[in-house]
Computed example of a mutant assay.
Amino acid sequence: MTQADKDIERPLGQAVRPARRPWPRFRAGRVVAVAAALCVVAFSGAIALRERPFRNPAAIVVSTPQVEAPAQANAPEMAAAPVEPAAVPDGPSIINVNPPDGSGKGVVIIRDPSELGQNLRVAHLPDKALIEQSETGPLPVRGDDGRRPVDVYARPWSGARGARVAIVIGGLGLSQTGTQEAIGKLPGEITLAFAPQGNSIGRWMQEARRTGHEIIMQVPLEPFDFPNVSPGRNTLTVDASAEENLEHLHWALSRTTNYTGVMNYMGARFSANATAMGPFFAELGKRGLLYLDDGSTARSVAPELALKNRVPFAVGDTAIDGVRNRGEILKKLDELERTARAKGYAIGTGSAFDVTVDAVASWAQEARKRGIEIVPISALTTDPERG
């Protein structure tokens, strides 16, 4: 039959339908390859949209229901400052925080365990659970839950293992003008050490913590040629009884709050005497404080006693302002940088002289551009409790 005959026999009004094309066959390998490519693109986009790497905690506002706790009669007043856990979690922790305005919008904070320390917005407020009231004033103490002042009052840092430098500037509180200049000019990463003989230490502590500084207390220890060379009032001495030295230590510790530990002021003779240093370190371990040895004497028994008494410990590499000259101070700071690049970290100590403060502030700004991280002293301690 011809095509014309077929067309004649076809019912009127029906068009010729084109032949259907078969569906293309997709091979399994191609499907897997396309899916893998889409996953790579999605993952890359997620990373690109992140503001910083995982080391920086991110706060994301989400809609979460506000849970109201049932009212209790005569409920105790909440502590003024939030607290941080002393133990480092195995991974990032998620904390839900509901604001007091009743908006119902919570904040989810993803916290990296390497970033320890107090929220800087409330860092000037003491944690009541870490204070023991005494005749001399408030003393730092471990909390009933095991938290330590060295952890709670530590300034957060990145947790990275690059070249790190800690700089501790001491003598705060002795000069009102000098103290104000140091707090105002030095970047928050610089640790400040307060002299117990200073004035208005509580007020300066709050100002220092508001601007981000970690702080420690200086404790006067007996040097050689004492009392001709004297670090000041209530010096701990080799010949004094353990009880008398503890009284002097408590006086220094009670001068303010919110500090992570102590460092020696002078003390070459005292630091070399294990009998005198034993009760001193036992008290620091009991109270959860760190100890910084300025490194001025090689005969110090501090490392052994710190390990024995579970005291976080660090030793200074160099005093940066032995010569009070800007050029010489900058040379010492450059030495610290070379040390940090060689072994991973370095610690420098100095005093709150105008020339020292100006040199450190200038050097720190440039050092960051060269990849140096300025960290608080608590970040560079050897901590027997953390291994």
Rank of each mutant, 00 (worst) to 15 (best):
M1L: 11
A4K: 13
I8N: 09
I8E: 12
E9T: 14
L12M: 10
R17N: 11
A19T: 10
R20C: 09
A42L: 15
F43S: 12
F43A: 15
G45I: 11
A46E: 08
L49C: 05
L49T: 13
R52Q: 14
R55W: 15
N56P: 03
A58I: 15
A58T: 15
I60D: 12
P65Y: 04
Q66D: 12
Q66C: 07
A71Q: 03
A73Y: 07
A73T: 02
A75L: 03
E84K: 09
P85T: 11
P85V: 09
P89Q: 04
D90P: 00
P92V: 11
I94Q: 07
V97Q: 03
S103N: 10
V107M: 14
I109A: 11
R111Y: 10
N119S: 12
H124M: 03
L125V: 09
D127I: 10
L130I: 06
I131Y: 08
S134T: 10
G146T: 08
R148P: 02
A154F: 09
A163P: 12
R164Y: 05
I169A: 00
G170V: 00
L172D: 00
L174S: 02
S175V: 06
S175H: 01
T177V: 11
G178I: 03
Q180F: 08
E181A: 14
I183E: 01
G188I: 02
I190R: 08
Q197C: 04
W204F: 15
V219L: 04
P220Y: 11
L221S: 07
D239K: 13
A242L: 01
E244T: 10
L249E: 06
H250C: 08
A252C: 15
Y259M: 00
M266A: 11
S271Q: 14
P279I: 03
E283G: 09
G285C: 02
L290M: 14
L292P: 07
L292T: 01
D293A: 10
T297Q: 07
T297Y: 08
R299N: 14
P303S: 04
V311F: 11
P312D: 15
V315F: 06
T318P: 01
A319N: 11
R324W: 05
E337Y: 06
R338I: 02
Y345S: 13
Y345T: 05
I347G: 00
S351W: 10
A359S: 10
S362A: 12
E366W: 01
A367H: 06
V375G: 09
P384M: 03
